[in-house]
Write a protein that binds this DNA or RNA. Structure first.
Length: 152
DNA sequence: TTTATGATTGTTCCC
DNA sequence: GGGAACAATCATAAA
């Protein structure tokens, strides 16, 4: 267990009239950006034999994957938890489980604001990736560029 | 000093 | 369709 949970849909967007539009948008935009993302998400993937951790910086210019709704909730939850439990230092052990459990008990209406944020971020991510892909195809993937990025 | 670990769910991609 | 990787965070451990 503890592996990745089966793909249980993040609640049907049609369940609520709240920001279902955003969710629809996300679906549409992802469909369009899918091809583009594939171009640059490929190098993002590490070989299966690689350790679990991220390669730190494969391509600094590459936009990172946007956080999911759960992650935005996690961020909120973490701050709140820190305020309520300033003595608890082993947050990494508690937050994950506690937040996960609470997430499951939350209603769609409670979650929808986080889905909203995640959707916006995802759209930004897709736009950034489209731009990035264009630059790559234009031959703008200069190594010195990634380096100079630091020396701004 | 630097990097990996763990714990969670959602999203995305490849096979 | 399903499996796998990666996204954030951060105290702690290990190299």
């Amino acid at each position: 267990m503890t592996k990745r949970a089966p793909k249980s849909g993040p609640l049907s967007p049609s369940c609520s009239g709240g920001s279902s539009r955003n969710l629809e948008l996300a679906v549409k935009s992802s469909e369009g950006a899918r091809r583009s993302t594939r171009l640059r998400l490929q190098p993002l993937r590490k070989p299966k034999t690689s350790p679990k951790k991220k390669p730190v910086k494969l391509q600094t210019k590459m936009p990172k994957k946007p956080a999911t709704a759960f992650f935005f909730f996690l961020d909120d939850f973490r701050k709140q938890y820190q305020e309520e439990n300033p003595d608890v230092k082993s947050m990494r052990e508690v937050i994950g489980k506690t937040c996960g459990e609470k997430w499951k008990t939350m209603t769609y209406e409670e979650k929808v604001k986080y889905y909203d944020i995640a959707t916006e971020k995802r759209e930004e991510f897709h736009r950034a990736m489209t731009e990035y892909t264009k630059r790559m195809e234009s031959g703008a993937h200069d190594e010195s560029e990634t380096d100079s990025d630091y020396s701004e």
